[in-house]
């Protein structure tokens, strides 16, 4: 078990190193003077020079990367070109909001998605299954930004029940939560249905029936846990994706998370922040995946370490 975790951890570290290379390379790829890019459009010549020497931008690329890596390890992601505040501070201030939204989306999506998928599988090819299948198709095909706008039109503009934007009120999370949750519900429901149907065809399900176990118990006691194993992975990956993929939803609802910060920073050409956000997203995704993999090995007794 421990060696499994260690091996898994090693892979994660390698992946993370790769991500730092990408984040580093991204700024190198920018046209023009990197010092000017990092200092920001509004910076004075003096400031640009200071950035150049502080970040060692006149040194060879290898040296620069090592220094970049060293700074990351020290928790220094540089300074925002816009606000002059440390990038870690900018990100840190908004991260909880992003996690909140992703968590709401994942929990809503997982619970409703699993219920929907199980119902669809139990009543395969019956009206309930068809309805859920159509619903899931709509859910995975719906552009989140359009869904967000539609929800705003109906619930904020026309009915006036819920706030259209921001995170100021207790009810603010409802519309972005639904927006982000719908896709997850659809995804998880599809996955659960497919997984359940596959499990229900297995020989051990037939064994359970042959023993005289009731239909309902076969579904819940024998099939669900087996079917849940692949679903768990999807849910985990989905949570990881929502942490970074909520960019569009955050933008539509002016939700003060890091997705929104990323878009704003791109427009402001605030590259230290963009770079920092990429690193943080990747780190979160990798950590979530690591946790899912370890959980997975607990759920599935077949995995041997």
């Amino acid at each position: 078990m421990l060696t499994y975790i260690a091996r898994r951890l090693a892979v994660s570290v390698v992946t993370l190193l790769g991500v730092t290379i990408i984040a580093f390379g991204l700024v190198q790829m920018l046209p023009g003077d990197p010092a000017r890019t990092i200092a920001g459009l509004m910076a004075s010549e003096d400031e640009v020079e200071r950035v150049r020497t502080r970040m060692g931008l006149d040194e060879p690329l290898g040296t620069q990367y090592v220094q970049f890596l060293g700074n990351i390890v020290k928790g220094d992601l540089g300074q925002s070109a816009r606000t002059r505040r440390p990038v870690t501070q900018e990100i840190g201030a908004r991260l909880p909001k992003t996690i909140e939204l992703a968590a709401v989306g994942t929990i809503v999506g997982a619970v409703l998605g699993i219920i929907g998928g199980v119902i669809a599988a139990r009543f395969r090819n019956r009206p309930a299954d068809h309805a859920i299948s159509i619903g899931s198709l709509i859910g995975i095909s719906m552009p989140v930004y359009w869904l967000g706008l539609l929800l705003i039109m109906v619930f904020a503009v026309n009915l006036g029940w819920l706030p259209a934007a921001g995170a100021g009120r207790r009810t603010s999370i409802i519309l972005p939560g639904i927006t982000i949750g719908l896709f997850t519900i659809a995804l998880v429901a599809r996955m659960t249905r497919a997984s359940m149907l596959e499990v229900l065809e297995q020989d051990y399900v037939r064994t359970a029936f042959a023993k005289g176990v009731a239909n309902r118990n076969v579904v819940y006691r024998h099939a669900l846990r087996n079917a849940f194993i692949p679903v768990l992975t999807v849910i985990g990956i989905q949570f990881g994706s929502l942490l970074g993929g909520a960019v569009l939803t955050e933008f539509v609802f002016a939700w003060p998370g890091i997705g929104r910060l990323m878009v704003d920073s791109i427009f402001a050409r605030d590259f230290p922040v963009v770079q920092g956000i990429i690193l943080v997203f990747a780190l979160m995704f990798i950590v979530v995946n690591l946790i899912v993999d370890i959980l997975y090995s607990y759920v599935n007794p077949k995995i041997q370490y």
């Binding site: 992946t15 970074g244 960019v247 791109i266």
Partner: peptide, 24 residues
Amino acid sequence: QRIADIMFSFPSILLALALVAVLG
């Protein structure tokens, strides 16, 4: 595979966004 892993660590929209930020 490590390259694929790294790319998979980003949701598609984020990767596309980062690339557009650089490419214009």
